[in-house]
């Protein structure tokens, strides 16, 4: 009995080692989005290209929709645009949420017309996957979605529930693994 006590340190160490081992194969920066399986947040925001048009939660509901948070300043977004465009051709409904570069936007003097020009050029060059783009003027919608940067994507079903989330670019492999099964399952 007395000797058993001396085995406590090695036991504690081995238990720790198990978790350290598991930890080696998971990315500590990969933090699950808190909004999964929750309704898409309410919002009222203008169109990026035409501020007279206004969108609300109803506009992302009704059909299975991929909401993509992006910006022209973001390099990774550039990378995923062509793949997203192919998804649109396959019949996936994609809605953009335009996320400004905060460093400039923080002081509220961004030139919208210049942004529109950049968006036009970039989409003409790399393909336009979006049905329309919501201009997240003060990034309130992004904050409600728990977005930490661009690009991020949310899969929203017709009832407006967020089913899947991806931080970073989506490519064929990730689409097939994380998003396609959900869409196919819903059908």
């Amino acid at each position: 009995m007395k000797n058993l006590r001396l085995f406590i340190p090695i036991g504690v160490f081995l238990l720790t080692a198990v978790f350290l081992y598991k930890g080696l194969f998971s990315d500590p920066t990969n933090i699950e989005n808190a909004n999964l399986e929750r309704p898409f947040p309410e919002f009222k925001l203008p169109d990026l290209m035409d501020p007279s048009i206004s969108y609300s939660k109803q506009d992302v509901m009704g059909d299975m929709t991929l909401v993509n948070v992006w910006g022209t300043w973001c390099v990774t977004c550039r990378v995923e645009l062509p793949f997203m465009t192919r998804l649109r051709q396959q019949g996936v409904r994609i809605v953009g949420v335009y996320y400004d570069n905060a460093a400039e936007a923080a002081f509220g003097n961004l030139d919208v017309s210049q942004t529109q020009q950049e968006v036009k050029e970039m989409l003409a060059q790399l393909g336009n996957p979006f049905q329309f783009n919501i201009y997240d003027v003060k990034r309130d919608l992004s904050l409600d979605l728990g977005v930490t940067g661009a690009p991020e994507s949310f899969l929203v079903n017709e009832k407006g529930i967020i089913l899947a989330h991806r931080r970073g670019a989506i490519d064929e492999r990730i689409w097939q693994k994380e998003f396609a099964p959900i869409i196919n399952g819903a059908k």
């Binding site: 905060a102 990034r139 992004s142």
Partner: peptide, 8 residues
């Protein structure tokens, strides 16, 4: 000074 930190 990250964007999201400024937003928060």
């Amino acid at each position: 000074n990250a964007m999201v930190a400024i937003d928060l």
